[in-house]
Simulated scan of single mutants.
Amino acid sequence: MNSVAALPMYGVSPALAAGWRALLADVLRRVEPAAEIVEPHDLHAFWRRPDLLLAQTCGYPYVLGLHEYVQLIATPHFDAPGCEGAHYSSLIVTRSDAPFDSIEACRGARAAFNATDSNSGYNAFRHTVAPYARNGRFFGSTLETGSHLGSLHAVAADRADVAAIDCVTMAFARDAYPELTSRLREIGSTRSSPGLPLIASKHVSREQADALRAALDETLHVQPERAQRLKLKGFSYLTAAAYDSIRQMENEARIANYARLA
């Protein structure tokens, strides 16, 4: 059985999705040419496949149990405001004409989030709001949109007032959808945490894992223009313990009696 791979997490536009697919194809040619690039419909099931050669996940699912099935391969460094090395943060955005100038001012407002298993759109957002919540509530209502791009559209279209957006996604959105992002403005940011890691099944050998890391580094140097379009500057090789800070943000929100975004 051939191995499978996919890098869909930052395919914010069709051009970006094609760029990530091309980068992945170059990596696979160097490591396992027979591996199949797929388009997963159920990411949680895909990440747990024993034949997974390379994928990208969010740090929150990783600490919530995915770490039992996968190994960390690398964490990208992105050239985007809000990134520092392998760490990133979320940008808290509202409409350009909205009256909010800080997260504290958003009490009673309508919040949008991409998914409850997202670190950038939910966990970090909840952690930022937690100190201001009263009796487990802060917002007037919440809306699950399914994606960061969906949250941006919800805020811009006045279906929500505020959202926390992965700063890498926001940088890509500014490039790809300037008319959308021009209708929004930032009013804050979340605590920084390790970025979205590249992962492989625990069944992947140490030799293959090392080959994947070498191939990732090589693809940046042989295609510098593509790396620039993907805002890729390099990679770090973090330990599982580095991602404990994401669990810590969840725990701090729960201690503040703010277990869910509300």
Rank of each mutant, 00 (worst) to 15 (best):
L238A: 02
H203G: 05
P197D: 00
L232S: 01
R30G: 13
G59T: 01
A86I: 02
P33C: 13
D161N: 10
I37K: 04
H127W: 11
G150R: 06
Y10E: 02
R48H: 04
D158L: 04
L7A: 08
H221G: 09
T181N: 13
A209K: 04
D210H: 12
P99C: 12
G150L: 10
A215F: 07
T219F: 00
D158S: 10
E252A: 15
A163T: 08
M9N: 05
T239M: 01
R49Y: 08
Q223E: 08
R206N: 13
Y237L: 00
L261S: 12
Y88F: 05
D166M: 00
A6Y: 03
H221D: 07
E179T: 13
Y122Q: 07
A22E: 14
M1V: 13
R247M: 04
F138P: 02
C58Q: 04
G140Y: 09
L184D: 03
C83W: 00
N119E: 10
P131S: 14
G136T: 13
W20Y: 15
L152K: 04
S151M: 15
A133N: 10
F138N: 03
S182C: 14
E104Q: 15
Y122V: 08
G146S: 12
I165R: 02
N123I: 06
T181K: 13
R174H: 15
A18H: 09
S245V: 00
S96H: 10
Y122P: 10
R226K: 09
G19A: 06
G59I: 00
T169F: 13
E207T: 15
S13I: 06
